[in-house]
Simulated scan of single mutants.
Amino acid sequence: MTTTSAERIGGWLLGPLAWLLMALLSTSLALVLFAGTLATPQMLTALTAQPTKDLVMWLVSFAFAIAIWYYTLWLVIAFFKRRRSVPKHYIIWLLISVLLAVKSFAFSPISDEMALRQLLFPLLAAALMVPYFKRSARVKKTFINP
């Protein structure tokens, strides 16, 4: 497999890359917290004592955190390899981030101020980065490898 010489990752592309790396770090920390719950006997006992509905929701959240972590890791690797599919998948990843923020805004028992703060950054990133990834000549020149 040969790779074509592409432009280096730089300029405005450093922002989306930094956002991806920070998201990978935060999802990794979330997975550590989930694993910590499973690692200690007291927390495991408290978790299994929960009603079935709450336990199922916890397991769904854990599975979704694993899926998001894996997708973010794959996207970071593809970003560094300058794969052709990165712009499309980055837009999908941004939309998933917005959906997760909307979900926390609508369904989580947190204050509206905190939920709006969590919603603001994904919305702002999507509003700025989706048009950039769709129309930028630099993006088209950078992500050319199969």
Rank of each mutant, 00 (worst) to 15 (best):
S104R: 09
L100W: 01
R8S: 15
W58P: 00
S5R: 11
Q42R: 12
T2G: 08
H89M: 14
W69A: 15
P131A: 06
A137E: 11
L124D: 06
A67N: 06
K53D: 15
L119W: 02
I96T: 14
K81T: 01
I92N: 09
T4Q: 14
L128P: 00
A6S: 15
L21H: 03
L59M: 13
P16F: 10
Y90K: 04
Y70M: 03
Q118Y: 10
F133Y: 14
R84W: 05
A115E: 08
F79I: 05
I66K: 05
S85D: 12
F107W: 10
K141G: 03
L33M: 11
A125D: 07
T27S: 14
L20P: 06
S111N: 02
N145A: 12
K81N: 08
G11E: 09
L55D: 00
A125G: 08
F34K: 02
K134P: 00
L59V: 09
I110G: 02
P87D: 01
R84K: 08
V60I: 11
L20K: 04
F64A: 09
A49N: 14
L38F: 15
A46V: 06
I68G: 01
S85C: 06
L123H: 04
W58Q: 03
S85R: 01
L128Q: 04
V32E: 06
L38G: 13
A78T: 01
F107P: 00
L59A: 12
F62I: 02
F105H: 14
T4A: 13
L95K: 06
L128W: 06
F107K: 00
F64H: 02
V60R: 03
I110S: 01
F121Q: 11
